[in-house]
Design a protein around this nucleic acid. Structure first.
Length: 451
RNA sequence: GGUCCGGUGGCAGAGUGGCUCAUGCAGCGGAUUGCAAAUCCGUUUACGGGGGUUCAAUUCCCUCCCGGACCUCCA
């Protein structure tokens, strides 16, 4: 992609703003990655995909992009799950991290440039906490270190809240060691059966928010271009990160633009295990093609609530079939091109308007199906810009080891057809259909594909 | 209760102060086919309710209704 200026919605300003790189030669961004205690669900997937699309777009526009996505491998949920599974914490986090990587790969989500783990940055975290204490923004109490919310005048700016109201609405009992009800934990003491590290404040482990501040500083510096994550992280997580980093480095601006993707609903409701509408990426991948899943998620703008449904997945597969069909006439004969239609780059530049970009792809597919090779080339390149078309059409339609049997049956059917024995011909076709194989009699002979 | 986001045709989902028109899926009619499939051509259906601003509002403002997110560790 080229030339067009990228605009992004900044959560802090509540509006779409032109993206101006702090360093046009090197764009830096940080997205919150998973806490590794279980398979990721499709809501997590949407967040990872949003980052993926943004990173792919940035890479097409800037010479160098550094994308950092952390792994939270120390957390009370992890401790609880390990105990429940009667499994060591390390074994749980390692296994879950592997599963996560596998899911991302299956979904064609590009790996980040740096994937730091919290447990490998305890020193960075402790240094930052010390600096916060030195700057008068944090205090130690009963083995804890807490961030002092009243010490930071701008607390609440990012998420648009004021601390007073937060206290009034607080639904959690305030711990006695907190000077102010809004204060949050930077460091907390660990028992012998909990993961812990020696520190000036006793053996303990970091709170959730501090790791992202420490790791983004470590790999991207005091100020960087974009920080993102799911909308549910806006408060308190990102607000607290902001407070930590800006109080640690008062001269910095931390993240320039904040990007948050909207939540995903299933059957019109938020996913939850109790409602039984909770799906892991694994479960969906077992039933659906990854590119179809990707497409289904891209059909909605990342900032609008998306209702994830079987119907949506089915439709997405149908459209991908059509797109691949549009490419199939040119199978191996399409070169990569940077010359994407302006309407496509314009849509993507406008706050990653993927639904609009897909509309352009529909138009290109129409042209490609009429034999327009240039349109097919552009369709393929546009799709690849969105992480689609990771396979070739023949593999897309015929990814099975039963090809010989299928082709033998097609031979039989063609023989029957020549003899005008349509009963036999139709019976064979129906049999194949039951196996998920659809036949198409084209002027160049019979072709087959999997549903 | 507080803060924020949203309500567009059967469904999904863009967009805009006025232009013939998003787009896709589904539906309907037709071409093609032995019949299908695929493809092509044509086609029906809309901007939550009520006020206001305006020559003109789905688009701006107010209000009501409805849905969703967040409100101390959920992407």
């Amino acid at each position: 992609m080229s030339k067009l200026n990228l605009s992004l919605y900044d959560s802090r300003q509540h509006k779409v703003v032109p993206f101006v790189a702090l360093d046009p030669l090197h764009v830096r961004l940080y997205f919150c990655g998973p806490t590794v205690y279980d398979f990721l669900h499709i809501g997590n997937l949407r967040a990872m995909l949003t980052a993926d699309i943004l990173v792919r777009t940035l890479r097409s526009l800037y010479p160098k992009v550094t994308y950092v996505r952390n792994i939270t491998d120390v957390d009370d949920k992890i401790n609880a799950r390990a105990k429940l599974n009667n499994e060591s914490i390390q074994s749980l986090t390692q296994r879950t991290t592997q599963d996560f990587h596998q899911d991302m790969q299956s979904m064609y989500i590009l790996p980040p440039d740096v994937e730091p783990r919290a447990t490998e940055h305890i020193n960075d975290i402790q240094q930052m906490i010390s600096q916060l204490i030195e700057n008068g923004h944090a205090y130690a109490a009963e083995g804890h270190v807490l961030f002092s919310v009243p010490s930071y005048k701008d607390y609440g700016h990012l998420s648009g809240r004021n601390p007073e109201e937060l206290i009034a609405g607080a639904r959690v009992e305030v711990a006695t060691y907190k000077k102010h009800p809004g204060d949050f934990v930077l460091w907390k003491p660990s028992n012998d059966d909990e993961p812990g590290w020696d520190s000036p404040w006793g053996k303990g482990r970091p709170g959730w928010h501090i790791e992202c501040s420490a790791m983004s500083y470590r790999y991207l510096g005091e100020s960087f271009d974009i920080h993102g994550g799911g909308h549910d992280l806006l408060f308190p997580h990102h607000e607290n990160e902001c407070a930590q980093s800006l109080c640690c480095f008062p001269e910095s601006q931390f993240a320039n633009i904040w990007v948050h993707n909207a939540m995903l609903l299933v059957d019109g409701e938020k996913m939850s295990k109790s409602l039984g509408n909770f799906f892991t990426i694994r479960e969906i991948l077992a039933q659906h093609n990854p590119e179809a899943i990707r497409f289904a998620l891209l059909q909605a703008h990342y900032r609008s609530v998306l209702n994830f449904s079987q119907a949506g997945l089915k439709e997405a597969k149908q459209i991908m079939d059509r797109f691949y069909r549009a490419l199939s006439a040119f199978e191996s004969d399409l070169d990569q091109t940077d010359d994407l239609p302006e309407a496509f780059t314009e849509a993507m530049s406008d706050d990653l308007n993927t639904p609009k970009a897909l509309m352009v792809m529909h138009q290109l597919a129409d042209q490609a199906l009429k034999g327009n090779k240039e349109a097919a080339t552009q369709l393929k390149s546009a799709g690849q810009q969105l992480g689609l078309f990771n396979t070739i059409p023949s593999k897309w339609f015929q990814n099975t080891d039963k090809a010989q049997q299928i082709e033998a049956l097609i031979e039989q059917r063609n023989t029957a057809k020549k003899a005008r024995d349509f009963t036999t011909a139709d019976r064979i076709r129906d049999e194949l259909k039951d196996q998920g194989i659809v036949l198409e009699d084209s002027p160049n002979g019979t072709i087959w594909r999997q549903i």
